[in-house]
Computed example of a mutant assay.
Amino acid sequence: MKIGCHLSVAKGFKHMGEEALQIGGNTFQFFTRNPRGGKAKALDLEDLQQFKELAKANQFATILAHAPYTLNACSASEATRQFAWRMFADDLQRMEQIPNSFYNFHPGSHIGQGIEAGIKLISEMLNQTLTVELKTMVLLETMAGKGSEVGSRFEELREIMDRVQYSDKLGVCLDTCHVYDAGYDLVNDLDGVLEKFDRIIGLDKLKAIHLNDSKNPFASHKDRHEKIGQGSIGEQAIFALINHPQCRHLPFFLETPNELSGYQAEILLLKNAYREV
């Protein structure tokens, strides 16, 4: 099973790798910079090399970098968009130091401009930034649909991809809390949700899963993560997802409200529920 959680990059990549191993993981997610800010810490190439050696020795799955929440590619403010586009380009340039990794971002909020305008602006950023040489896989995250978020419907993610020249560089990270809150019933119709994803986007584009329970009820269009088994999704639905033939091979990343000990307990719970084939 490929599983990890969100860790702090502050102490470096080797430290994150060691923490992941300590709690039973074999991958991890991290913010590329302060999630509420814009400045990124300079990469320590020696630390990065030590992590690569650790990851190879321990057969790590693909790691996932998460863009900061301040990145809004489809803001109504041109200054905010330009800031986002610069940050996105800088992050991708840095991620090329860790080839074949994932870079995940929230598509953004159109702030009253409308979904179509938001999709157009997000696609423009991707067309400006993605190149044929890029080794990092960029992931669009499924969203809950709160406010003016873009990406709560599979059709919206498909339309973004259709407008991007190098769409082979794009994939999707499915967030269980987000899709459930958006109105995709993972609890009672997991097969139907995955069939719809396949028909609209294609399961070959599903590259990673954020495993989260939800504090809110089905189709609430909120975004409040809960610990596994303590929310409205429930552990049985999560167990069904991690064992589903179309998902079980993917890397799973916990974003539940936990400290390391809580993540360790959840990783053990999920490993025990994971059926080897």
Rank of each mutant, 00 (worst) to 15 (best):
S148V: 00
E149N: 04
E149Y: 03
R153A: 08
R153Q: 10
F154V: 06
E155Q: 14
E156A: 06
I160P: 11
I160M: 03
I160H: 05
M161K: 14
M161W: 13
R163G: 03
V164K: 04
Y166T: 02
Y166A: 07
Y166P: 05
K169H: 00
G171R: 02
G171E: 06
V172W: 03
C173Q: 06
L174V: 12
L174S: 08
D175M: 10
T176Y: 11
V179G: 10
Y180Q: 08
G183E: 15
G183A: 09
Y184P: 07
V187E: 00
N188F: 10
D189A: 15
L190F: 14
D191I: 12
L194T: 06
E195D: 10
E195M: 14
E195S: 09
E195P: 03
F197H: 06
F197N: 07
D198R: 06
R199F: 13
R199N: 14
R199K: 15
G202N: 04
G202R: 01
G202E: 02
D204F: 10
K205R: 02
K205P: 07
L206C: 09
L206A: 11
L206M: 02
K207T: 00
I209E: 03
I209V: 09
L211M: 08
N212L: 01
N212R: 00
D213C: 13
D213I: 07
K215M: 15
K215G: 13
F218I: 10
H221R: 13
K222V: 06
R224D: 15
H225Y: 06
K227H: 15
K227L: 13
G229N: 12
G231R: 01
E235S: 06
E235T: 13
Q236P: 10
Q236H: 12
Q236D: 15
A237G: 01
A237I: 04
I238L: 08
I238N: 05
I238Y: 06
F239H: 00
F239K: 01
A240M: 04
A240L: 15
L241S: 02
L241M: 04
L241N: 10
